[in-house]
Design a protein around this nucleic acid. Structure first.
Lengths: 135, 135
DNA sequence: CGGCATCCCCCGGGATACTG
DNA sequence: CAGTATCCCGGGGGATGCCG
């Protein structure tokens, strides 16, 4: 991480953005609720396009709004490809770009770590809870 | 930080969809602003302990509050080890636990991706902007 | 020195309703 | 069917201030 977040001691408006720390920005992205799930679902579809409604069906709990917002962001970022079929009713297809596909890799590592270790994290949490709960 | 007093989730590997999903929770964690930076700095210190003030110095921009909150969370999670030296003034030392150390790996992959590809993401963003801003 | 507590602002993101 | 526009709430997180 190479930031160096400098800002005047008093600017209360959120300007003076973090002068690009790439890692920070990437974490913000994949940290947003639905981003990594979209990438995973699209990665599972391989190179096949997936329609909006299909995506939504494969992502229980996502609202239309958030799926839409998430996809727009990923499209802007060049990670997702969007194709509109001008029919009635309209159909919109999505798939990962080559760039997006390369992100699946590190994300998979994160997923693996979670599956493998989060149980232990839970145990650690319970241990802490006990210590504070007793007294 | 999530206040997880929740219990396990056995998983089929696919349930990134479970709100209780380990991956979701991990992403929430590492998505919070300072978590991954703390892990990186502590990882760089290897097994050596690092004092609070040292950490803060190595993380430009972090407030005392947020560093404190972040460290408490990581300690609860069993990723960071905390040792208090009851002197006057008091000294508090931190280092990664073995568990925390294993998280450095996947985080490094994420960092690498960011360093390697965020420039391309920026280009994609600029291209989108032109299309909407053009006139 | 380390780290609680307090105040407060901002924005992610859910629910709902409306257009093409 | 896909996407946009409103409204609204909770919580992340910055800026103090105080205490062991």
């Amino acid at each position: 991480m190479t930031s160096s977040t400098q800002r005047s001691a008093r600017g209360h408006r959120g300007d003076l953005f973090d002068p690009q720390c790439p890692t920070r920005r990437l974490l913000d992205r994949i940290g947003t609720k639905w981003t990594s799930m979209v990438i995973k679902v699209l990665a599972e579809a391989s190179t096949e396009e997936v329609r909006f409604a299909q995506l939504q069906r494969r992502m229980p709990g996502v609202s239309q709004k958030m799926l839409s917002v998430t996809l727009r962001g990923l499209t802007r970022d060049g990670l997702v490809d969007r194709r509109v079929e001008a029919s009635v009713p309209p159909r919109v297809y999505y798939r990962l770009t080559p760039l997006g596909l390369t992100l699946e890799e590190p994300l998979a590592r994160i997923r693996e770590w979670a599956e493998e270790h989060m149980a232990e994290v839970d145990r650690a949490n319970r241990r802490s809870d006990e210590r504070t709960t007793d007294s």
